[in-house]
Amino acid sequence: MIRFILKRILLLIPVIIGVSFIVFALLEAAPGDVADAIIARAGEVTAEDIEAIRAAHNLDRSMFYRYGVYMLNLIQGDLGISDITGLSVWNTFMQRLPNTLLLSFSALIIGMAVAVPMGIIAARNAGKLSDNFASIFTLVGMSMPVFWIGLILIQVFSGNLGILPVAGFDHGWRSLILPAICSGLSLTASTARQTRSSMLEVLKSDYLRTARAKGTSEDMVIRKHALSNAWIPIITAAGSSLCAQLAGSVVVESVFAWPGIGRLAAEAVFARDTTTVMGTIILTTVLYVLVQLLVDVLYAFIDPRIKSQYMNTSKKKKKTGMEKEAAAA
């Protein structure tokens, strides 16, 4: 198990190199450079100042040189300091991260609480009214842009009813409600569909018949036997939704002015704040890969087959070692 986790973490390295290079190259390709961005903000600057800035950022060297410098700093754990705000990228990210985590997990809880029962009910009543109703709901939910859902929520709850704040972060838990519901709804649609289809698959299986044949109540057949097997695809769906939430929360965070990492990235791209964009994307990628790893580890706890797969690799090694010893004796 530990070997598996270590291997996955080692695989992060090429991903980080690839991601950082692609993003770095794209940012370099954008018209204008850091110097322009700084100058645009600073107002009056002399030619010497410009030269100094350019030299400080190695703008007279090749792109690969600058990338090399960046990666060298990255290896030492230094994500750099924003040229625009003058703040450490690491600190800014860590300051924003809890907000995104709060929003994502609230959304996940809301989404799962609605989606899983809905998917189960739909699967058990496949083809009937409640199934059709659920499938219309999920299809429409999947087809609506998240920002539109957010705007409708704002319009109804803040505009018409006036009971919740429009946006921002200053009203405590009341600020959280709308963005969490908005992300949660978009998560519900895909998770409910996944739950339905994996339940349908499981409901056809022979072991449910075995369970019924020994007098297990229908309720227990569903809760214990069916759900325990349906969890894996559901968790996959929820896991990738969570990844999408964490990494792609740009839209929801922008609509609700929620100070998370998605909005940080969007603002940084807008301000041509190269250092912050790089740092944010790299850290988001790490986060993304870690969540996926977490999901994979979760499987092992749910499915004994996968668990023994992980175990076997290390067990076999031990066994062969023991056999060698036995042979030597």
């Binding site: 299986s205 022979d206 072991y207 018949r209 075995t210 369970a211 019924r212 044949a213 020994k214 007098g215 214990k224 036997h225 325990s228 097997n229 749910i302 499915d303 004994p304 087959r305």
Partner: peptide, 20 residues
Amino acid sequence: RGKDVSMIFQDPMTSLNPVI
């Protein structure tokens, strides 16, 4: 079911719940 009458199914590979 299971008390008065019970059944042995055809395919032992699929009749047992894999996660219990």
